[in-house]
Design a protein around this nucleic acid. Structure first.
Lengths: 208, 208
DNA sequence: TTATTAACATACAGGCTGTATGTATGCAAC
DNA sequence: GTTGCATACATACAGCCTGTATGTTAATAA
């Protein structure tokens, strides 16, 4: 057994260093913004030098992309864990949206994923990341709802993107201090609005 | 009459220089991104020096804010010009959304207003700007629709924000090459989804 | 064992931002 | 109209940051 500073395989070293860099960067990128965080600060927090950073990542943007990727995965995981697959597509959709809003309350997460992410990496790259993680569940939920006849048929890509956009903005607003209830109510109204016949199943009287 | 290089009043000089800087910055910010555009490049394009820039603007961000402000005003103006006030709230809403999508096809506008803007100035600042220009019309349209009983009652702020978010994402997607028809169809479905179905009892909805 | 490559650390070269300083011109008071 | 101050800049400077080039040590393949 080799000690911390003993001899380690190259693969272990790489893995550990990359993880340290991503963790340090994640912390700083969520505390401050991408632009306000310098690489000297990141490597200091990670306990390495800029040489290590530029050995493992092409540039600052690539490190940022890795952080975003990881964070998106964490969010997706939190959603899947928090929202058990419901029998009714509509309920699953709502549970998922609640879970998303809850997950996005982690400090700095909205800025990282919803502001800096799109600006630094571009919408296309963010779409690609989102589709690989969180949005996948959303799209599947929407498709399921459409198949179950509980939602009118619409272009899937566009529908997913616009719902995702609404969820994102809601997360931003709630994070900024807006009423979560208000945004939740509108989101539910948007979902229910797409149900083909009048209005979905008897809604459990929300009237307190 | 004094010539271009003759003696001009200070107020005229200030006005002209500020306008030149904003125009040059707008051009570069739409061609490239905020981060990729340096102040040396901007002042060169404007025909002044960095001294002038920092005399008139606190920093690069302040100049960017001025550009965004102006561009948002232009978009709002294009919308109002293109969408005649319709008798029916729903039609006005759709006309406005079409006008918005059309206006946002101007090169670089989506990145300026929808990506760099929020990232550089923050969502709160962008909301403030939007509410002063484009979103105002949207909110009024929604309120009118709700008043006309052609839309269920929902919290106005949240409703406006989420619709704006959907429009924004649609503009981004269309600008990126997605099918405008698809996004238009979903947007219309979302709008129509909120209209209380004729033969449907008015649902108890809380206002604000 | 030796050769090669990976994993860094260190040193360096621009470029950019914001500020400090200098200068000429408009403008207001006398 | 001259004097004095403020405005509108231009120029010069300091600090930081990014990306690259180079050097060194340790792992791994031959």
């Amino acid at each position: 057994m080799q000690q911390k500073s003993g001899r380690r395989s190259n693969r272990d070293r790489t893995e550990a260093t990359r993880a340290d860099l991503i963790a340090a960067a994640r912390k700083l990128f969520t505390e401050k913004s991408y632009a306000e965080t310098g690489t000297p600060e990141i490597v200091a927090a990670a306990g390495v030098t800029r040489g290590a950073l530029y050995h493992h990542f092409a540039d600052k943007q690539a490190l940022f992309a890795a952080v975003v990727e990881q964070e998106a995965a964490v969010v997706a995981e939190e959603i899947e864990r928090a929202s058990p697959p419901s029998l009714f597509a509509r309920d699953a959709l709502i549970a998922g949206s609640d879970a998303y809003l809850a997950a996005m309350r982690a400090p700095g997460r909205t800025r990282l994923l919803l502001l800096d992410g799109p600006a630094v990496l571009g919408r296309a790259a963010m779409d690609e990341i989102d589709n690989r993680h969180g949005n996948r569940t959303l799209r599947e939920g929407l498709v399921a709802a459409m198949r179950a006849q509980s939602m009118v048929k619409l272009p899937v890509e566009a529908l997913t993107a616009l719902f995702a956009a609404a969820f994102d903005r809601a997360a931003l607003a709630v994070d900024a201090g807006a009423s979560a209830d208000d945004y939740r109510a509108v989101l539910m109204a948007l979902i229910d609005g797409l149900s083909p016949v009048p209005h979905q199943a008897p809604r459990p009287a929300r009237t307190r």
